[in-house]
Nucleic acid binder design. Structure first.
Length: 492
RNA sequence: CGGGAUGUAGCGUAGCCCGGUUAUCGCGCCUGGUUUGGGACCAGGAGGUCGCAAGUUCGAAUCUUGCCAUCCCGACCA
């Protein structure tokens, strides 16, 4: 690498950017604010997607697909939602190009082909989906309706960052309809748990579950629940959200059902989503100056085997041995790559797979084969050891689980150490500047104070943790009475 | 969208202020050989609309204007 990766705080953004690009996850695209997800990054996304999809199906959901275009009249039906997204929409106004009469070989938008009604490229799909649900729901027998879609959405952000905030991104959005408020709230919290379980158990990133303040709520929701993760530079990242939408969308799109007593009522709704932003969370939660560190459960490659040889004969011997090991690992369901490409030398491969974050590397040469061992290196701790070939596959399987657990424990310990109580304004600012992380502090509960704190400290209320402990206190800014602490942080 | 910086080969760069032969260097790439237990070495070679467009000039990577993109800091946000 020409330029060294460094995760020092002052270079953190640069480090993150370089890492995304050099590790082969993604690249800047020629299109403003968009990115190209490269095969390695997409393989990671597929693993994450497949696991989430299984979890959605285990909780009774099914997949469907809805249109990319949302007619403006539908988009504006739920006022708060429309207002919330209005500033960041891409809009289709025409449907045809024609040759430019003044400029040969160039095309211009055909002014004759102006759409009567503009189409909004979905920034989220509530509008188009609820307009569709209207035709699907008549009776309580049609409920609950539990649907998810995997899709791309577009939000015309002012400032973009690879994975964290791109103009176009991939995500899943669940949209459910229920007969009762209780059931919808239960669904909202259930999906929040699914997200927390996925992010913690598969991505090895600990999260805090909580509810957003009204200021930070999703446009059109009654309540927004979230999982908040902590990055290594001490900034917070919203990793997923689950919204209780009340009857707002049902009323906006006139979705009514008859209950058992033939009484008409509007349905209750939820929506929930996670996006490719999770990949950004993964990178910033685990990586080091040598590159990415992938949690084994979702790593595109869990094990890489690198042969060390001199000359063709020794290569043949090692190939034979390695292929045997590959077969054993694959038999246990381990994602393994044997890299006997002759174009690069072992040292180069070691560095490259570290950059890509492959959890376990196995190196084997004639020396090892004579002793019936391999050299095994962990990416997370960088420990190397000599391991017997007999029983290797079982050992690796267990090691992968150990690495997964180790990564989570390490991130959890970091997160715990970075949750600090502050009881005065000075202490609050000092902690934000010097330590970072979550600051647990009293707040008087008003949006006005929340705004002032944000203005003066750049910190926002990330969430009010679920099952938050109630305690008497005074607001760090206004000194007014407060009943509980909330979590503040500077955030991405 | 406001402020700042940057854009020269796949990557990283020198040259720009003060215009002037064939645009510098390193990595990577190609060929041949020697190599292979932590990003190998030697020899030879290929690769460039100097971000794009217009302008000034005998002459533009260099000066002017506009546009585009990237990064950083804000505002906005999954």
């Amino acid at each position: 690498m020409a330029k060294e990766l460094t995760s020092r705080a002052e270079d953190y953004s640069q480090w993150y950017n370089d890492l995304v690009i050099k590790s082969g996850l993604a690249d800047h695209s020629a299109v403003r604010g968009c990115m190209v997800i490269k095969p390695y990054g997409f393989a990671l996304w597929e693993n994450m997607r497949d696991q989430l999809d299984r979890m959605f199906k285990d909780t009774g959901h099914v997949n469907a697909y809805f249109p990319l275009f949302v007619p403006k009249s539908l988009f504006e039906a739920e006022e708060k939602n429309a207002e919330g997204f209005a500033k960041e929409c891409a809009i289709v106004t025409h449907y045809r190009l024609k040759n430019d009469p003044d400029n040969k070989g160039k095309l211009i938008v055909d002014p004759e082909a102006k759409l009567e009604e503009e189409l909004i490229i979905r920034p989220t799909s509530e509008a188009i989906i609820w307009n569709t649900y209207k035709g699907w729901i008549q009776s309580y027998r049609d409920l609950p309706l539990l649907i998810n879609q995997w899709a791309n959405v577009v939000r015309w952000e002012m400032r973009t960052r690879l994975f964290l905030r791109t103009a176009e991104f991939l995500w899943q959005e669940g949209h459910t309809a229920h007969a009762t408020k209780e059931e919808a709230v239960e669904e909202t919290l259930k999906m929040l748990d699914v997200y927390a379980d996925f992010v913690e158990q598969y991505m090895a990133v600990p999260v805090i579950k909580g509810v957003k303040t009204p200021n930070e709520r999703f446009a059109g929701a009654e309540d927004t629940f979230c999982i908040e993760a902590l990055m290594q530079d001490g900034k917070a990242l919203q990793a997923g959200t689950s919204h209780f939408l009340g009857q707002n969308f049902a009323k906006a799109f006139d979705v009514k059902f008859s209950d058992k007593n033939n009484k008409l009522d509007y349905v209750w709704a939820t929506s929930w989503g996670v996006s490719t932003r999770l990949i950004g969370a993964l990178i910033m939660a685990h990586s080091d100056d040598q590159g990415l560190i992938m949690p084994p459960k979702i790593a595109p490659m869990q094990v890489v085997i690198v042969p060390v040889y001199k000359g063709e004969e020794s290569k043949t011997v090692i190939d034979a041995k390695a292929n045997g090991i590959v077969a054993q690992l694959k038999a246990l369901g381990i994602r393994v790559k044997y890299d006997n490409n002759d174009n690069s030398r072992p040292g180069w491969k070691f560095a490259e797979y570290e950059l890509k974050g492959v959890p376990v590397r196995i190196a084997m040469g004639l020396r090892d084969i004579e002793n019936n061992v391999v050299e095994l290196a962990r990416r997370d701790t960088k420990e190397k050891s000599s391991v017997p070939v007999d029983g290797l596959a079982g050992y690796v399987l267990q090691l992968l689980e150990e690495i997964q657990q180790y990564m989570f424990n390490k991130a959890r310990a970091f997160q715990k150490a970075k949750i600090t109580k502050a009881d005065s304004w000075d202490e609050f600012i000092k902690l934000l500047d010097e330590k970072g992380g979550f600051i647990s502090a009293h707040w008087d509960g008003t949006g006005e104070t929340e705004d002032k704190i944000k203005e003066q400290s750049k910190a926002t209320i990330r969430c009010i943790p679920l099952n938050n402990q109630q305690e008497e206190g005074i607001c760090i800014l206004t000194r007014k009475p407060s009943t509980q602490r909330v979590l503040f942080a500077r955030a991405y």
